[in-house]
Design a protein around this nucleic acid. Sequence first.
RNA 1: CGGAACGUGGCGCAGUCUGGUAGCGCACUUGACUGGGGGUCAAGUGGUCGGAGGUUCAAAUCCUCUCGUUCCGACCA
Length: 576
Amino acid sequence: MRYSQMLLPTTKENPAEAEVVSHQLLLRGGFIRKLTSGLYTYLPIGLMAMQKVENIVRQEMNRAGAQELLMPMVQPADLWQESGRWQKYGPELLRFKDRHDRDYCLGPTHEEVITDIARRELHSYRQLPMNLYQIQTKFRDEIRPRFGLMRGREFVMKDAYSFDASDAAAGESYRKMHEAYTRIFKRCGLEFRPVEADSGTIGGSFSHEFMVLADTGEDTLVICRECDYAANVEKAKIVLSEKVTTDGNLEECSKVETPGMKKVERVADFLGVTPKEVIKTMIYLADGEPVAVLVRGDREVQSVKLKNLLDVTEVELADDDTVWKLTKLPVGYIGPVDIPIKLVADQEVMQMVNAVAGAGEKGHHLTGVNPGRDFTPVMTGDLRQITAEDSCPFCNGSLELTEGIEVGHIFKLGTNYSEAMDATFQDKEGSQQPLVMGCYGIGVSRVVAAAIEQNHDQNGIIFPLPLAPFQVIVLNLGLKNEKTTAAAEKLYLDMQATGLDVLYDDRDERPGSKFKDADLLGIPYRVTVGKTWEKEGKVELRLRRNGETSIIDYDRAAGIIADMVQAELKSTEDIA
RNA sequence: CGGAACGUGGCGCAGUCUGGUAGCGCACUUGACUGGGGGUCAAGUGGUCGGAGGUUCAAAUCCUCUCGUUCCGACCA
C-alpha cells in the first residue's frame, strides 16, 4: 500500500474524548472514528488489524474442527420467547418492530438461532459432534459504552457453538475450545490467563474467561501464587476458615446506644471490638424484591454471587429512600434480628458468635447476637468478595488480585437451550435426546484494543507481529532524488512480491513526520531508504519493539526481512 | 438511572464570569526555502459559536428548554 493514497489520518494531539491508551492510539493512528457513543467506523488500517485477528481465529477454529457459517444479525422475538430470554435478557437487548408490527431484536449472541438450525438439521448421533462458528458484528445496548473498542455497543465477535451427544462428549468439545483459545491468544502475542468465571446471562453450568492482564481491565481476577488456580472475583470460591469454638459461652442479646454511628468502623470502635465482630446488614433489591444480606463487617458483598444464590437476573443495592420505606429505619441500624424482610447470609456470618449488629432501631445496636439463635436466614452461602488475604481453594496457597480484560469466554451450556427449544437427536438406541451444547466467544475488536493496552510506549503502538496491519514500512527519505525514489519503489515492490504486508511511505513529508507516524502505527519493521543508500547502497532496518537498528544491503533487504518475518511468525505458531 | 463536566472551522483549545465587528495552535491550499525525529517564512481557504425559544438597541456570552458527548457512581448500612 502506498501511504500517499491511503486513508490514514494520524494526529499529533490526543483527542479529548479518549481516556485510555488503546482508545487514544486507535484514534490518533487513524484506526477508528466514532460515529456516536459506542459505535465506531473501522478505517482501513483498523480493519486490517482486526482482520489479522480474525484470520488467526479462523485458522485455529478450523484446526479444532469447527466450521464457519454466518447467521443473521436481526433475530425474530419468537425464538427468544422460546428460550425464555426475551423476558430475561433486559434492556441490553435492542428490540424493535418491523413494518408488520412483529417483534425483533439485534443479536447480542446467537444461541437461539444456532439452536434453531441444530434442531432442523441435526437428527442423528452420527452427525455429532458438530461445532459451528461465525465472525460477525454483535449489538449490545450497553448501559455505558466506554474506552473506545473496549466496550462498544457494536463490536465484532467470533461465536462458536458445539453440539454433542453426551455430557462427556460435550466436555471434550469444551476442552478442545479451551485449547484452541489458548493457541489463539498465544499467537496474538498476548499475556493472558484463563480463569474460572460466572456464566452470566448466557447461562450454563461451567465457564472460563480468557483475560488479558492489563490495568485498564474492567474485571478483577484472583490468581494463586502456587498453583494454576485463577478465577474472576465474581466466581472465586472462598475457603471458610476453621470454625471458632466458643466453649458454649453464648452471651445474651443486649441493646446499646450508638447514636449517629452508621459505619461499621465507628460502631466497632465505640464498642471496643473489631469490624470482624460486626454483622453488616445490606438491603438489596433482587428483581425488585427486597432482600437483607448479611456479611461480616469487614467484608464486601459480591453481587454476582448474590444474584446466583437468589437465582435472579438483577440485584441492586437499595437506595436510602427505599431502605426507609421498607424498614422505617435510616441506613446504618438495620439488623438481622426480627427483620421483616427475606434474609440471606454469607456462610462466614453463620460462624460468628456474640456479634454486634444493627438493632432495628434508630441509634441502637445489639451485642451478643448469635446466628441460628437470634436469627435464621432462609439461605446461606458464599456471598462475599474474595480478598488477597484469602487462600487458594485448591492448594491453600496465597492469592494475588489483578485486573484483566475479558477477550474470550467459553461456556458449557448443557441442555438448557436444546430442551427449551426442543432440539433433539436420535441416539444409538433410537430414542430422542436433547443436544448437549457449549458456546464459545471471542471479542475480536476487543482483542485489538487489548493488544494495544499491553503493547505500547510513549511513541505509540507496538504491534505484536501477528496482529500488525502492516509488517513493514518503507520510508522514502529521498523523494527529491529520482534514484533514491526508484530504489525505494523497487524495494517496496520486491517486498510485496515476497508476500510481506508492506506500507510504502511515499508522502512528500519531512523525515520527522514519517518516523513519528511509523512509530505511532506500531509497524514492527521499519526500513529507511535515504542518505545511507545514496552513500553506500545500504538501507537502515529498525525494530519498533526495541529500537534496535542495523544497516543492511539494499539488494538483500527484501529477502532478509521476509525471512525475519516468516521466522518470527512461525515461532509464534510453534509456541502456541 | 443518579451525579458532574463539556459542546466555538477537520483536531486541540481561548473568549462566556463583566453582552458591543469570532480568535490562537495544529491540519488544509499556494509559493519560497528546507530535507534523518512532527522545520521556517509569506499569502490564503474554512466557523449562522450543538439546536430551539426568550431577554436586550445588541447574545458565543444572560435565562428556559432540548439534543449530544465524556467522566464518575451504580460499592458496604
